[in-house]
């Protein structure tokens, strides 16, 4: 039964009706980031205007966003790397030895409201003079990245056939050796999924950095928030900052689309 042209057209319209509202805020953000303040406050809102780069200039030159960019990257990458180091063996063990309780324990870390650890951290870190230190921020962000990595990788390792590591073990390798030499190399897609997602969540985190970071280690989400709260809402520059923050996560998503979808949906789909 081939659908008629009219049906196909109707379907296309329906799909557009789904996609456009999702996309629209991004388009508007992007457009506004190239508008002058005059164009932004214009009424009725302007669709056509002569674009300017002054907002981006202001964000990077005057507001020093590059520094916060680097901070976000340092913290995100360190948190993800350390979490991989700890999380991969744990995920493997959960998958191989069926440690259900352990996986639940780590899942709880994902479900708990962040603020219930944040307050004690705040007290402890300030006693240890670790406020505004990369150590404190990386440790806190690891509580975001580690559960994601363990959760995704445990599921992934379960899908890796036992035979490959068993055949390595028949050849005389220990299980830990087989894990490193045989299992990890085939776990690439799983690692890509978990790394991409956990990095994005660390990149987007606001609450932990808002409390634990100050001037030195401030990350991007805090920078944009502060920018709004005392830069007397310079909308164009704020939108440029928003574009700059979202761009890396969106680019990562575009490159690793397949993996991101899998990572985000598998927890629920798998029974």
């Amino acid at each position: 039964m081939r659908s008629s042209l009219a049906m196909r057209l109707l379907f296309a319209v329906v799909v557009l009706m789904i996609v456009l509202p999702i996309l629209f805020p991004f388009i508007w953000m992007l457009m506004s980031s190239f508008k002058t303040q005059v164009d932004i406050v214009a009424w009725p809102p302007r669709l056509f205007f002569s674009p300017t780069l002054q907002n981006y200039e202001r964000v990077f030159r005057e507001q020093n966003f590059l520094k916060y960019f680097i901070n976000s990257a340092i913290i995100g990458i360190s948190a993800v790397a350390l979490s991989l180091l700890m999380g991969l063996p744990a995920a493997f063990s959960i998958a191989r030895f069926g440690q259900k309780r352990l996986s639940v324990f780590i899942l709880v870390a994902r479900l708990m409201p962040g603020i219930s650890f944040l307050m004690p951290w705040y007290i402890i870190f300030s006693r240890l003079k670790l406020m505004d230190s990369y150590i404190a921020l990386v440790l806190s962000h690891m509580l975001i990245t580690l559960p994601i990595i363990v959760w995704i990788m445990a599921t992934y390792f379960e899908s890796v056939p036992l035979e490959i590591e068993e055949s390595a073990m028949v050849d005389g390798a220990t299980r830990q050796r087989a894990f490193l030499a045989v299992v990890l190399p085939v776990a690439g897609p799983g690692i890509v999924t978990s790394v991409t997602l956990s990095f994005i969540f660390s990149w987007n985190n606001f609450m932990f950095s808002q409390v634990l970071s100050m001037e030195r280690t401030r990350t991007l989400p805090i920078a944009i928030y502060n920018f709004v709260s005392y830069a007397e809402v310079d909308w164009g520059a704020v939108m440029a900052a928003a574009v700059a923050i979202m761009a890396p996560a969106i680019l990562l998503t575009m490159v690793f689309q397949k993996y991101v979808v899998k990572g985000l949906t598998m927890g629920a789909v798998k029974g």
Partner: peptide
């Protein structure tokens, strides 16, 4: 892909 975008965007922004 479009549906993924809101999920990976920084909530504060």
């Amino acid at each position: 892909l479009v549906m993924l975008l809101p999920l990976v965007s920084t909530p504060v922004a």
